[in-house]
Design a protein around this nucleic acid. Structure first.
Length: 284
DNA sequence: CGCCAGGCGAACA
DNA sequence: TGTTCGCATGGC
C-alpha cells in the first residue's frame, strides 16, 4: 500500500463525495473508499488536506489529483458568485463542497440511470451494474471492488441482463447510448476539445440524454463550470427564491441562469442543490 | 397501501 | 413553446 498527502485548503470530502455527483464512494470509518481509473483508492480528511492510499501508485496520484480537481482556484470561484442571500446561505452551510472531474463514460451512464430516482437508489443501480458486469479490482480494504463496466461491455450485454440490475425502463437508453459510443457515432474523447454548447449537442444525440443529464456530464466529467443542470430541486429553489411572483418561461429562465450566476454557475448550482437537499430539510 | 424519486421522449393543444 | 403522460423499481 502506498500513501500520499495532498495539501489543499477548503476541501471537504464529506460534502463532496456525498453530494450526488458521483455514486460509488463509500464511507468506511473516517475514510472514503472508491475507484479512480479502475484503481481502488482510500481518501481521508486530514488537517492539512487529504491523505490518499492506493495499491499501486504509478500515475495514480496524478489521476487522483485530476479527479479531485485540486488545482481549482476555489476562493476565486466563490468570489465570482452573485452575493444574494440564498447563495450565501448555501456557501455557509456547505463549506468545502467541490466539483469532481469524473471519467466521462461512468458519469454519463450513471446519470442516464438517474432519472426519476433518489440518490440512494441510483447508488444501488450503479452498484448492481458493477457487480454484474465489472472486473474485479485489487482492494486495500475489507470491501470487494469491481470496475465500472466499459462502454463496449455494456453495448454487448442483453437488455434483459441490464434490467436485472434494477434499472427498468432506463436499460434500453443505457444500452442504446453505449452502442452509439462503442460504434464511434459519438466520441466522448472528442468532447474535451469542443466548446460547451457543441459538446452538449453531441451528448444530446444519445438516447436517454436530455438537457439536464447532458449538463450533469459536462459539469461533473468535463469540468465545464458554465454548465448548470436544472433538476427538480434546483427548479424548486429557482421558482421559490428567485421567481416568487410568477413562473418564467423556459427561455427566460435559461437566460437568467446564463447571466445571473456568472461563469462558474455550475459550482453555484451544486451549492444550491446540496443546500436545499441536505441542509434545509429533514429527509433524504 | 399511495406517493414520489438529480428525466426523457412522444403525443398532443 | 407549453402541458401531459407512461416508463420500472424501491423506500417510506
Amino acid at each position: 500500500m502506498f500513501r500520499q498527502q495532498f495539501e489543499v485548503r477548503d476541501y471537504s470530502l464529506d460534502e463532496t463525495l456525498a453530494s450526488g455527483q458521483a455514486f460509488r464512494w463509500k464511507k468506511s470509518g473516517e475514510s472514503w473508499e472508491g475507484t479512480i481509473r479502475n484503481q481502488w483508492i482510500r481518501l481521508t480528511q486530514k488537517p492539512g488536506g487529504i491523505e490518499a492510499e492506493m495499491i499501486e501508485h504509478p500515475q495514480g496520484w496524478k489521476h487522483a489529483r485530476h479527479y479531485l480537481q485540486l488545482e481549482v482556484d476555489y476562493p476565486g470561484v466563490i468570489a465570482s458568485f452573485p452575493k444574494d442571500e440564498h447563495l450565501m446561505s448555501a456557501l455557509q452551510a456547505c463549506q468545502g463542497l467541490r466539483l469532481l472531474r469524473q471519467e466521462p463514460w461512468e458519469c454519463l451512464a450513471s446519470f442516464i440511470l438517474s432519472s426519476t430516482k433518489q440518490i440512494v437508489q441510483i447508488q444501488q443501480i450503479v452498484q448492481a451494474l458493477c457487480d454484474g458486469h465489472g472486473e474485479q479490482l485489487a482492494s486495500g480494504g475489507e470491501r470487494k471492488w469491481r470496475s465500472f463496466p466499459e462502454v463496449e461491455r455494456v453495448a454487448e450485454v442483453a437488455e434483459e441482463e441490464l434490467r436485472r440490475c434494477k434499472m427498468g425502463f432506463r436499460a434500453p437508453y443505457l444500452k442504446g447510448s453505449a452502442e452509439l459510443i462503442a460504434r464511434g457515432d459519438v466520441d466522448l474523447k472528442k468532447l474535451e476539445v469542443l466548446p460547451t454548447p457543441e459538446a452538449r449537442e453531441e451528448l444530446l444525440k444519445l438516447p436517454g440524454v436530455g438537457r439536464k443529464i447532458a449538463d450533469c456530464v459536462l459539469l461533473f466529467a468535463y469540468g465545464r463550470q458554465d454548465a448548470f443542470p436544472v433538476d427538480v430541486w434546483v427548479m424548486r429553489i429557482l421558482r421559490e427564491r428567485y421567481f416568487p411572483k410568477r413562473k418564467p418561461s423556459a427561455a427566460r429562465l435559461q437566460r437568467f441562469i446564463d447571466t445571473y450566476f456568472g461563469i462558474n454557475r455550475g459550482y453555484a448550482q451544486q451549492f444550491l442543490f446540496q443546500y436545499i437537499r441536505t441542509k434545509e430539510r429533514t429527509n433524504s
